[in-house]
Design a protein around this nucleic acid. Structure first.
Lengths: 215, 215
DNA sequence: GCGAAACGGTAACAAGAGTTACATATGGCC
DNA sequence: GGCCATATGTAACTCTTGTTACCGTTTCGC
């Protein structure tokens, strides 16, 4: 668990001192394990999560109850959707799941509004958070609209590699298929092509990206 | 051009009196003609547009300079992306074009921040605006990810019809193809099917939706 | 060790969508 | 009228993706 000193050190670059103090006073740091659900559909939102370490996956159900991946949250990031829900004291429209073991701060929703008035850094943080999420969504949109599945798969692998910080990814073909919204067979086919092109090596439940894997 | 009284009447339900007064004092109402560019890529943003009547189309260039439609803005709506840009005094990342003749208020960006502190209704407006845009994007994402082109075409036509307020749409097959990111031939093919199914009637530069056009 | 479940490889086929090519129709303009 | 750009209809073909089916392999629980 992160110490009080480490926390201060981590937040100082983003927020002004007064806000860091308030966070230390009112917010609670928690640890979540891989796969743990941090926030679920329909639950009341009592806090806004800010990710200290690890990664959260944010998902949402569409009109026909299919689940789509919105984005990942990692180092110092936070969920704009959750914020919007907080402000209107609504139920959650998203589900957040720990992608790996993670530490998050729960910022109490009662404070958020007053911080908006008191701390310019908080205001900036919230708005840039919104724009970042917006841009992420636009990237996904673009990817779906203009890129073929093989391109999307490559970007997906690159992204995973970046998030996990390794070139050896613990993934089954099935998982990938679900996240990209297609079927296992298709993914196997494309992965096999990438392997033939000497861009990756396939093992069971593991994909190793080779150094040539960059275009 | 909208009168001062009409403006007040239109804004009163959304904003508190003080804000309506300030808007009347500092904001400028302008009329734009169909096809006119209200805001373009790379321009400095000096105002945030709020649509009084008519419709604006908001677009954005992706990494490879392809243009994608983000959403439409109409009655009392406003562009969250523009707001985010305003706050950070950045150049515009979007282009806004009048879909038909429209009236918009230009809210001066110097005021936006102080309004955030002074008027709760403005804060609510901005945040719900963000969530609405977010939801719009998610709908597009969903549409692209899970719906076939014929479904998307139908939704597109329904949406157009709603925006224009008529069932007779002045559209060429080419225009539709561009907005849906496909080719003319494909759209012609699908439209012909819809005509065979007695859901629409095709004319030159015009598509008439029949009453059976609802599923 | 045994059986079930999960994982991955592969083939064959179907459907959707994009592409090319060409014909025809319409309307504006000289 | 004749020319030309734009709009639309249609056919034939390819490519990508999804689907189904069946295989052997690995892993896990018992």
């Amino acid at each position: 668990m992160i110490t009080s000193e480490e926390l201060k050190h981590k937040l100082n670059p983003i927020f002004e001192k007064g806000l860091v103090d308030e966070i230390q006073e009112f917010a609670k740091v928690i640890e979540v394990k891989e796969g743990e659900v941090v926030l679920d559909y329909g639950k009341n939102i009592t806090f806004m999560p800010l990710v200290l370490s690890g990664t959260l996956r944010v998902m949402r159900k569409d009109e026909e109850d299919k689940e789509i991946l919105l984005y990942y949250l990692s180092n110092n990031e936070s969920c704009a959707m959750a914020y919007a829900c907080c402000m209107e004291a609504k139920k959650s429209e998203v589900r957040m799941v720990a992608e790996d073991n993670a530490e998050i701060i729960k910022l109490p929703h009662q404070k958020l509004d007053s911080w908006l008035h008191k701390y310019p850094s908080w205001k900036t943080y919230v708005f840039t958070s919104f724009t970042h999420r917006f841009n992420e969504l636009l990237k996904s949109l673009d990817s779906l609209a203009f890129h073929k599945l093989d391109q999307r798969l490559i970007k997906y692998l690159q992204n995973k590699s970046k998030i996990l910080g390794k070139s050896s990814l613990p993934l089954s073909h099935n998982q990938i298929a679900e996240e990209l919204g297609t079927s296992r067979v298709v993914i196997s086919r494309l992965l096999k092509q990438l392997e033939n092109d000497k861009k990756i090596v396939l093992y069971r439940n593991e994909i190793k990206l080779l150094s040539t894997f960059d275009i």
